[in-house]
Amino acid sequence: MTRDSYVFVGFLALFALVNTILVANGALSLDWDGLGVIVAAGCTLALYSFLYKDNPLFKFAEHVYVGVAAAYVFGITWYNSLYGEIIVSYFDIGEKGANGGGHNPWVLLFPTLLGLLMLTRFSRKFSWLSRISFAFVVGVGAGLTIPRYLSSFLLGQLEPSLAPLTLSWAGLNLFLVLVGVITVLIYFFFSVEHTGVVGHASRLGIWFLMVSFGASFGYTIMARLSLLIGRISFLMDDWLHLM
């Protein structure tokens, strides 16, 4: 046996021992709640074991997570939408039928048909039919997205960026935003050689970008640590009852 095999077996034995002690002293109950905590603790430790190195326990927990999440999403989508609205509406099943929900099932006919055409991708002979659905999605998507994005992200953001400057902290913030926007735009303007004034402005733009990347990175560290804190809190409180 290799050293990693000993670590693997030792980890499993230690996990079993800890759970036996927790159940024996009453910290964990021998019911579905207690079993849920043990499974969650085991999955958490198995996934974090990747920090030591890739191993079968990590792979098992990773695959279980992907499988469970996919099945859960399918279940929710099936019962809420596919069955709950489409099938029930067409066949008028129980109170959720066409009249119960105030839905006209014929309204759903066209989108249902387009959805079914998407599935023809699985057949070589009929896959061309899926282009009708994709054409609809692309056409409607572009038609909806372009004006909404122009309004929200371009015009909506231009307005505060060009607000009148004042001699106050708010005015200083506005000035910094304005300088940042202009210099970063200059940095991404490649039709003019970045020398002289344009070069200086472009370098200032890089500094603004660096600060922005730094802020994003800082927030990312905070986010990842928050997730770690959540899991360690669970292990120490719900599982080991140390807190």
Binding site: L225, L228, I229, I232, S233, M236, L242, M243
Partner: peptide
């Protein structure tokens, strides 16, 4: 990092 999380929780 683990100690930095665990100790302040206790």
């Amino acid at each position: 990092v683990l100690l930095g999380v665990a100790i302040p929780l206790l």
